[in-house]
């Protein structure tokens, strides 16, 4: 099941294809290794190509081929364990290197991590079929504020921006009070 923008996403068009497996028609994701090795074949077929990155194995390779990764239509980050937070930095680094396509979080994850994934820059989260999507969606909304600017809060309001806004409002209010006596 796929969650996107705080809701269950309708149908998933992507198929994960293993190394050595024949490429079917339609949208596919392949391992980073295959993505780099078979770029021309992949580009020549119909359907979009996404890449799967496993933070446990692919860190150096992904970093040294940032330009190639940037061309993928989808990057799927496979979390090896929910305690392994490398994927968060990988997502963040992808956004920083200018990747604009869809980032999907997949693998071992907890509902409590949904909001953090979105803040780092993930668009979608793949959850196992047996899981309760409502728990995930509820946890994503449990904290409505975030201190970290520069991350991409979607549901959450950024505290620094809110404070800056309040500051500007105070300044404007002060300016008006100061200005008023001059008019009279």
């Amino acid at each position: 099941m796929l969650l996107r923008d705080g809701a269950i996403a309708p149908g998933d068009s992507w198929r994960a294809v293993d190394d050595g497996e024949d490429l079917p028609a339609g949208n596919v994701t392949v391992t980073l290794r295959r993505f780099l090795a078979e770029r021309e074949q992949l580009a020549a077929r119909d359907g979009e190509v996404g890449v799967r990155i496993n933070p446990g194995e692919d860190l150096a390779l992904a970093a040294s081929h940032a330009d190639a990764v940037n061309t993928a239509a989808l990057v799927s980050i496979i979390f090896p364990a929910f305690t392994d937070g490398r994927g968060f930095s990988v997502i963040r680094s992808l956004r920083r290197q200018g990747y604009r396509g869809e980032i999907r979080a997949d693998g071992s994850l907890l509902p409590d991590q949904f909001a953090f994934l979105r803040h780092c820059g993930a668009d979608t989260v793949a959850i196992a079929d047996g899981e309760d999507a409502q728990t995930w969606l509820r946890e994503a909304r449990a904290l409505s504020l975030a201190y970290q600017a520069g991350y991409a809060p979607t549901d959450a309001r950024n505290i620094l921006e809110a404070r800056a806004q309040a500051n500007r409002a105070t300044l404007r209010a002060t300016a008006i009070t100061v200005a008023t006596p001059e008019k009279t």
Partner: peptide, 13 residues
Amino acid sequence: RQWSTFHPEFTFL
């Protein structure tokens, strides 16, 4: 303190 509170990237170090 504020920056590190629920940091989305650094909570599963």
